[in-house]
Design a protein around this nucleic acid. Structure first.
Lengths: 253, 253
DNA sequence: ATTGTCTGCTTGTCAGACAAGCAGGTGAGC
DNA sequence: GCTCACCTGCTTGTCTGACAAGCAGACAAT
C-alpha cells in the first residue's frame, strides 16, 4: 500500500470528523487504482497506526466504504477492494460544491429521466395524481404572485408529483434524489433579481404546458414539454446548453 | 421512539453483522415515519441498551445512516433525522433480491437513461469512442460464436462503451451502476437454454443496429435503436412490458 | 430582563480486551 | 511421498471503560 507518514491525517490539519477524512483518503486510493480491485487492505491496526487514529475510527471509515461497495470485509481474513468498487450506491457531489461543468452533466442526466417520467405520467396518471400535480402547480403560482420565498420548494413538489404519477417507485426516488441535489442551484432563480427577470414566470408557463399534456394523456406532447422546460431551465440557471441536443422535438418513438 | 424490548435484535436471531441489522431497523423506523424528520434519535447509549448491543455497534450503524443522509449528528447535541431522509445516495435492492415488479421498474429507469445516452453518444462520439464500442461488439460476437461464458460481461462492456461516448461522467456512472445491479438478472440469457432460444443472437443484431446509428451520427436512429433493444431485452428477461403491473390489465395504452 | 458562567449530557475519540472465524503450517497416519 | 485433521497466529467483530470536545438549559449576578 505504501502510505508515507507525511500523508497521515491529523485532527489539527483539517477540522471535521476523522473518519470522514479517512474515508476520503481510502476512496481516493481505490479510485486512483493505487489499491487495485481485489487487493487486500492493510489491517485495521495498521491503518490506525499509519494515519494516526484509533481502530474505532478506522472501523467506522471501512464500514462506510463497505456500505458504498468499495470494500468487502471477511471476518478473520481481512478487508478487500471490491471487484467493481463503488457501484453499490450512486452519489453526486462527494467533494464539496459542484462546478458548472458537473452541474451541466447532472442536468443532462436529470433531463433524460424527467422527460421519460413525463411520458410515463401522461400514460398512467390517475385522477389523484392529476390533482396532486395541479395542486403543486397552483401552489407555485401562489408563491409567484405573493412573492413567497418557498417557490423552489413548490417547483420541487411539481416535479415530484409528476414522478409519482409514473407509478414507478425507482423513477420517483431518482427524480427526488436529483432534485434534492439541485435545490441549492435552483434557489438563485427565486431571488429578487431572478424574479425581476421573469425567470419563475417563464418556468411556470412551461409547467402549465407540461401539466396540460399530462392531463389529456398526450405522452408525446408531455415529453416535448418536459424537454423544452428542462432545456430552458438549464439556460436560466446558466449551466449551459447541456450538450448540443439538437432535439427535433419528439423524434423518438 | 417507543421500541418494545421484544423487538430487540440479537445475534442469535439472525446471523450477520449486528450493525447491519441495526441499520435496517433504524432506517425502517425512519421511512415508516415512526421517526419523523427533524426528530431526535435516542442517545447512543439508550439505543445500545434498547437493542442489546454495545455503543460501538450503534455508532457504526449511525455512521452509515449518516452517510446515506438519513440522520445528521451534532457533537454534544445528539443525532437527528434529516429533513429529507435518504436523499444523499441512490440505492437499489437494499433488501435481498429484487422481485419481478421491482426489476421491471428499474428496467424502465434504465431504458430512460440509456436511450438518452445513445442519442448523446451519436452526437458526441469520437473515433476512439467508436473503436471502443466496436471492440465490445466484436468481443460479444466472439463470445457468441465460441460459446464463451463471459457474454454477459461483453454485453455490459458494450453498454458501458456507449455511455462513455456521451462524455458525461455522471451518465456513464449511472449506466454502470444500473448495469451492475442488472448483471445477475441478465445472466439467464447466456445459459445454454437461452442461447438455444436465440436470445443473445437477437440482442446482438439490435446492438449492431445501435452501433451503426451511432457510427453515422444519427441521434434519432440511435435513440430508436436503443429503445427497441431495451424493450426487447425486457421482454426476453420477462420483466416487461414495464408498466401496468397492477394485476388487472387496465384498458389504457 | 439581560448576560455570563456553570453543570450535566451527548457525541467523538482512544485504549484494551475477548470472541468468532480464516489461512497457512505442522505433524500424524497411510 | 501424499492426504488430511489439527493447531497456531492473525484479523475482523464486539464489548467495556474512559476522556476530550461541544452543546443546551439552569442558575446566578448585574
Amino acid at each position: 500500500m505504501d502510505m508515507p507518514e507525511a500523508l497521515a491525517i491529523r485532527a489539527v490539519d483539517r477540522p471535521g470528523r476523522l473518519s470522514d477524512q479517512l474515508v476520503a483518503a481510502l476512496r481516493g486510493r481505490i479510485e486512483s487504482g493505487e489499491l487495485a480491485a481485489g487487493a487486500r487492505l492493510p489491517t485495521e491496526q495498521a491503518l490506525g497506526a499509519r494515519f494516526g487514529v484509533s481502530r474505532a475510527v478506522v472501523r467506522e471509515a471501512i464500514a462506510r466504504l463497505q456500505a458504498d461497495g468499495y470494500v468487502e470485509t471477511r471476518q478473520g481474513a481481512g478487508a478487500f477492494v471490491a471487484a467493481r468498487p463503488g457501484l453499490a450506491s450512486f452519489r453526486i457531489g462527494t467533494e464539496g460544491k459542484l462546478g458548472a461543468g458537473e452541474l451541466a452533466q447532472i442536468f443532462e442526466l436529470r433531463a433524460a429521466v424527467e422527460v421519460a417520467a413525463a411520458r410515463l405520467a401522461a400514460e398512467r396518471r390517475t385522477r389523484g395524481d392529476l390533482a396532486a400535480i395541479r395542486a403543486a402547480l397552483e401552489r407555485m403560482a401562489r408563491a409567484l404572485a405573493e412573492g413567497a420565498a418557498d417557490g423552489a420548494a413548490a417547483d420541487d413538489a411539481f416535479h415530484r408529483a409528476i414522478a409519482t404519477a409514473t407509478h414507478n417507485a425507482y423513477m420517483q426516488r431518482f427524480v427526488e434524489f436529483l432534485g434534492h441535489h439541485f435545490s441549492e442551484s435552483r434557489r438563485p432563480s427565486w431571488t429578487d433579481a431572478g424574479r425581476g427577470a421573469g425567470r419563475p414566470q417563464a418556468a411556470q408557463r412551461e409547467h402549465e404546458r407540461l401539466y396540460a399534456a399530462i392531463a389529456r394523456g398526450d405522452a408525446g406532447a408531455a415529453a416535448r414539454a418536459a424537454e423544452e422546460h428542462l432545456r430552458s431551465s438549464a439556460a436560466r440557471l446558466g449551466v449551459g446548453p447541456a450538450g448540443r441536443r439538437t432535439s427535433r422535438g419528439g423524434g423518438e418513438r
